[in-house]
Simulated scan of single mutants.
Amino acid sequence: MSFRVRQSKFRHVFGQALKKDQCYDNIRVTKSAWDSTYCAVNPKFLAIITEAAGGGAFLILPVEKTGRIERDIPLVSGHKKAVLDIQWCPHNDNVIASASDDCTVKVWSIPDEGLVKNLEEPITTLIAHQRRVGLIAWHPTAHNVLLSAGSDNMIFIWNVGTEEILIELGVLPDLPLCASWNYDGSLVAFTCKDKKLRIIDPRSGAVVKEHKAHEGTKPSQVVFLKNNLLFTTGFSKMSERQYALWDSNLENICIQEIDNSNGVIFPFYDPDTNMIYLCGKGDTAIRYFEITQQPPYVHWLDQYGSSEPQRGIGAMPKRGLNVNNCEIMR
């Protein structure tokens, strides 16, 4: 009987940790209980939400400035309460947005050389939410367009340049946990506390599709893939962590248990290789899978393991990778 191995260009992908002198040391990562990645990176800068007394702050480091970080390093410290989410603008490496417990979203401009003193004045403050803002996502194709979602169950899509609300959506019945734009920004997917997965057309404000996703009560995450497929991570009724793949009509293609750990899993998707990386808070492993058209559709490739548990996770855009060393994700 012949045994045929599945053909894949990425079957031998492996993870490799950088040497200690190329790492960042002595960073006081926030102890906030909010389920966010706490970290954002682009080819110029690394941003990490930090512990701060009397308000919310995050630090900005030039990517090449590795080694031990001083305790009195300048911070971005304009929020009155804890910072919950940070996202770099995909069209401008010097612009970062932050969402906070103080009900505001602020947009900051970082000088090319990094911060030399505390930055307290944003270029834009977006005020509309009545409760804390836990979620922001830049539009993938339109410049200066930012989505924010908060605990008031409202979604606002902003023109950051003029501080105007372009679109106001009140279609979510419960707390939004995660948002993901599709490839061209024509649709946006949400997971909510009511355990449902929704696809929303932001221009008409209509819920295009909705479906019960993971049955567990803990937070679930979603990411839009190519061909308008969706990939979600969440928990089963028995609190087992699981991932699932859905088509554009939210019909389930596959669902698979991972393990019994209790940390939220964040998916990071690479559309060029069609690979997905699953990073869990408190985990010591990063798992990677390949998405294909053939059953079982989500193929296990390998996992990278370390001795230190993860506190925050960020994915470098392709522009910042060392392709000469065949690096496909960092």
Rank of each mutant, 00 (worst) to 15 (best):
P43F: 01
P111T: 11
D102A: 10
L146F: 09
G150E: 14
L84Q: 08
G56H: 12
E120W: 03
T104N: 07
T50F: 06
E70Q: 12
F58M: 14
P43Q: 09
L84Y: 09
A47L: 12
S151T: 14
D85R: 10
L46S: 14
G114E: 14
G56Y: 03
E120C: 07
E113S: 10
H143W: 08
K44I: 10
C89G: 01
N92I: 01
P43L: 07
G114K: 13
V116K: 07
A57I: 01
V83M: 13
F45V: 12
A82H: 09
E121P: 02
E70A: 15
V116H: 04
S151A: 14
E113P: 03
I96F: 02
G134T: 15
V107R: 01
C103K: 15
K80V: 06
N92D: 13
V41C: 03
A82N: 10
K81G: 05
I69N: 08
A99N: 13
K44G: 05
L59D: 08
I86K: 00
L61P: 02
G55C: 05
H139D: 13
N92C: 02
H129G: 02
A137V: 09
L135I: 11
L126W: 05
I136R: 00
I69D: 09
V145Q: 15
K117T: 06
L146D: 03
C39M: 14
R68W: 08
F45I: 03
I136K: 00
L126T: 12
S77P: 01
H129M: 13
H91M: 13
I127L: 09
P62A: 12
E51A: 11
P90E: 05
G67K: 00
N92W: 02
L61N: 03
L75V: 02
I60N: 07
R71S: 14
T50I: 15
A149L: 13
C89H: 01
G78V: 02
L61V: 00
V83N: 11
I123Q: 13
K44L: 12
T104V: 09
S100Q: 08
I123D: 08
P74K: 10
R132Q: 12
A53I: 09
K81Y: 09
L135Y: 03
L126R: 06
S77H: 05
L75S: 04
A97W: 03
V107F: 00
